[in-house]
């Protein structure tokens, strides 16, 4: 089944065509990666798909349903969740509470129940805590549950966002550079987490600069450059695509990124 499909998706900021006629067709149950040089529009694509921006042109389908123009919270209730490249942590809350917020769409209480703490709320809180703890355990943060979220290190915050998104039990999960700023050990952990997520039947769309991670884990890769699709295919196809290597070398020019492809 195609879980996410975009058709000629486009948006411009002033003169910049950040996303320009991008077509996606993502099969469910796999890791689908989107790569491209800095500023090529990866995050913008996520913002469009998750409803934060409204496209100037084109359409989006989620599990076959037309969802273009829906608000982020409406999309979330349809099973889409995401993390952010520059973290959006609830820093005043504890680590556990952050993840509890992720349960919001599954919580069934009303304002009166909440104000008067009806038994349903107590029951609900209990269930939410349990689910949140389980999500924290999946990213190896169970021990930090009661710490203030603001006090975690960067890598841990990245995983906290994944746990929070997982807690909402999405069918489609967008991860924006989950391994950025992580050391090799942490990157390895992220790799494991993503694999376990997919095993649960959740489709993962991954934006990531770490080519080793991308090449290892993805079923298919979509390459963006200046808001347009450069190519799309399996890791092998993408790796052997000269244009991709050039696009990367043109920007990075480092031995490292060259090596990562081979």
């Amino acid at each position: 089944m195609i879980i996410l499909q975009t058709d000629q998706l486009s948006i411009a900021f002033g003169g910049v065509r950040a996303i320009d006629g991008v077509n996606l067709a993502i099969e469910s149950g796999q890791v689908y990666s989107i790569i491209g040089p800095n500023g090529s529009g990866k995050t913008t694509l996520f913002n469009l798909v998750s409803g934060i921006y409204t496209p100037d042109d084109g359409s989006i389908r989620l599990a076959g349903e037309a969802v273009t123009g829906l608000a982020p919270d409406q999309l979330a209730r349809r099973g889409l969740s995401r993390t952010f490249q520059n973290l959006q942590i609830f820093s005043r809350m504890s680590v556990l509470e952050n993840v509890m917020v992720g349960r919001h769409r599954h919580e069934r209480t009303g304002i009166f129940a909440d104000l008067f703490h009806w038994p349903s709320v107590a029951r609900q809180n209990q269930a939410t805590v349990e689910a949140a703890r389980a999500a924290l355990a999946r990213v190896d943060l169970a021990d930090s549950a009661s710490r203030p979220a603001g006090s975690l290190a960067y890598g841990a915050l990245k995983r906290l966002e994944i746990a929070r998104a997982l807690a909402s039990e999405p069918t489609l999960l967008l991860l924006d550079e989950p391994a950025a700023g992580c050391n090799p050990v942490e990157t390895e952990e992220i790799d494991g987490v993503i694999r376990s997520i997919v095993k649960d039947g959740i489709t993962v769309v991954l934006v990531e600069h770490d080519m080793r991670l991308v090449m290892n884990i993805s079923s298919r890769i979509h390459v963006l450059a200046s808001g347009r699709t450069l190519t799309e295919g399996t890791p092998e196809q993408v790796r052997s695509n000269v244009a991709v290597v050039q696009a990367y070398l043109g920007i990075h020019g480092s031995q490292e990124s060259n090596r990562a492809f081979h």
Partner: peptide, 9 residues
Amino acid sequence: IAALVLGID
């Protein structure tokens, strides 16, 4: 934004 993305109206 994070609240919205988690389904909060």
